[in-house]
Write a protein that binds this DNA or RNA. Structure first.
Lengths: 356, 356
DNA sequence: GCAAAATTTGCATTCGTATGCATCGAATAT
DNA sequence: ATATTCGATGCATACGAATGCAAATTTTGC
């Protein structure tokens, strides 16, 4: 009666035979909304269960030309932000009955093999995150008629959609926050130079500082890598005119910078040095770091991403859509506090100067 | 000449027509080792390029009944160990021309839907990691004739393979290390109670302590979750007879325990409290933590995992294989040091008592 | 109870590729 | 030069499920 053990080759035809109906009937039983009487449906379900039948998604894909697979490209997962994204994407896609084909662990250079695989599997959509090969790759995919969403990255060309947060405003708010905190000299540890997030955060920061009359900004590059961020921090913090406050382009690097500052240079944070990050990733919340940081609304970003994909898949129309969400400046202990502007919300302290 | 833009429906037949050959010829061109003359091969390749043709992996799978997809099940990615595994798996599988279908972000409870999806996609193999539903799920899959490898977990039933490290020996070595370090009272913060890793590490630890004449072990459970580990640490460290040394079942929790010890209870590590972890995950190496920990040889574990799968896929024989690798006790700053037994290797300090 | 409409059902075909088999041509052997 | 072999090629079919269409059945209306 039970079965459990399932022979590899249980096909719809075998079930049909066993249930005394046609193969079409079996197919319709498993196709929501198909025309089938409750009676035969039950018969089929019974036989299916007995034989341990499950529709073959491959065969289905072939004929519907829908794989129900979404490719996710994340070159590296070192930054905890991305595993979080992945987990949330897993949830969101599963809810829509889609599956997640992951491309990771390859060096950024060789985009071509990845692209080839994507095309061969006829994925229904593509999410590009944490990869610098976005631009070229995305254009190609879009040209091939596959919906593409850039996650946490944008591009000028308008063929592909994107989901981001207000990086520019974030950078600006951080500048305001640091100025309000009484700092007078500033540093920036940059992410990947050609990434839109880095560019926008930087520009907003510079703009915000300038608006307050500060132009003495020192810059080093960490390329979103821990190792390089450490090196950058060493250089910046060894300067005679070491800045009082540093905006690090993301939390992943900020953690490294804090370690270097404290343990290699013996600096007290925030008394002697203020650090602000971006992302509000796990370790930022750990007591050892307590990083003051611009949060990215992960859940909403993922929702938007999946939304866009589902829309484009359903409509068949690939029209680039750009969703820009906003985060908050979460105030913790890694930076000196301004006199005012800090409010409490949902048990967190955030920076909200009056005009905002 | 170039093309770039690719019409959705370029099939092998279209290429065949364009090249003036049969569809079979096109197929053979893209099938390594098939019988085809260099001349026609070139003709086909030229046409394929011009039309932007790529073999349809779905259709190929249908007929070969090989999807070249490996399912990876990781219920959660909070513990950085798993993203690392994922990245390495991505690399290793790509090298074998396999792809990675990721199942993540679901609560452990509902294993059934996951199982259903696995079966429907006719994946060629399954890797189960960081999930407690291993036992039931794995049996089912194995019964269905799909190779399964448990990653960092074992099970008694011998239907499924597994790759682990010597958890028991690891626990024992940690006990030896702590005893040699002069500690006299001990604590254990446990992982998931029904997981084999937790059980083995615990048993080895207890055994090692007992061998040295210590039986005064206090235990709390953190279930491999950060939040619960924090709570466990609070309880354990508030005891009047707080232990001098704590073995935390993995680094992910050890980080949390250190934060609580330092910032909530003001304890100095390692002067007043020694902490040892397991995994040697990223944050363990960060200066703020510098966790002394049993390493798990990630790369080799992944290699073995993929090895086992490839073997079983190639041979069609599913014979459970259990690979057990060994790690090292990496000595850092979170625990008091023994007088002897610490040696340097590859720029790292490891604990290697004479008999080992 | 009968005709018309609505619903089920089965047949046959399709998706795009791989592959056994037969055929054909060229290369080798005698 | 002819017989033999071997590689290259094409034909036809198969993989497993979805679906348009027509036939069969049930339901509805009067």
């Amino acid at each position: 009666m039970d079965s459990g053990v399932k022979k590899p080759g249980v096909t719809s035809s075998r079930v049909a035979e066993h249930a005394g109906v046609s193969q079409s009937a079996v197919s319709r039983t498993f196709t929501p909304g198909a025309s089938i009487s409750p009676k035969t449906r039950q018969k089929v379900l019974a036989s299916a269960k007995e034989l341990g039948y499950r529709p073959n998604a491959i065969a289905r894909s072939l004929i519907t030309s829908r794989s129900r697979i979404i490719a996710v490209v994340m070159a590296y997962l070192e930054n905890l932000f991305y595993p979080d994204v992945l987990e949330e994407l897993g949830r969101a896609l599963a809810a829509e009955n889609y599956h997640l084909l992951l491309f990771t662990g390859f060096m950024d250079r060789d985009s071509d093999p990845v692209f080839d695989q994507l095309m061969q599997y006829r994925v229904d959509g593509i999410i590009l995150a944490s990869t610098s090969l976005s631009s070229e790759l995305s254009e190609e995919c879009a040209a091939a008629g596959i919906p593409v969403v850039l996650f946490n990255r944008t591009t000028e060309r308008d063929a592909v959609s994107s989901v981001t947060t207000r990086n520019r405003e974030g950078g600006k708010r951080i500048a305001d926050f640091l100025v309000a905190g009484g700092h007078t000299s500033f540093g920036y540890i940059a992410g990947l130079e050609n990434s839109s997030t880095n560019r926008d955060r930087y520009e907003g920061y510079v703009e915000g500082l300038a608006a307050n009359g500060y132009t003495n900004l020192v810059v080093e590059t960490g390329n979103y890598s821990r190792k390089e961020a450490e090196a950058a921090a060493r250089v910046m913090l060894s300067r005679p005119d070491r800045p009082e406050a540093i905006f690090v382009a993301n939390d992943h690097m900020a953690v490294a910078v804090m370690d270097v500052a404290r343990y290699e240079l013996g600096l007290n944070i925030p008394e002697e040095l203020s650090i602000v990050g971006f992302d509000d990733v796990g370790p930022a919340r750990w007591t050892s770091y307590g990083i003051t940081t611009m949060s990215q609304p992960l859940k909403r970003m993922v929702e938007s991403t999946v939304d866009i994909l589902m829309d484009q898949i359903a409509s068949g129309e690939i029209e680039a859509e750009h969703r820009i969400l906003s985060g908050e400046l979460i105030v913790r202990t890694s930076a000196r506090l301004p006199q005012s502007g800090i409010v409490e919300r949902d048990g967190q302290r955030i920076y909200r100067p009056r005009e905002a």
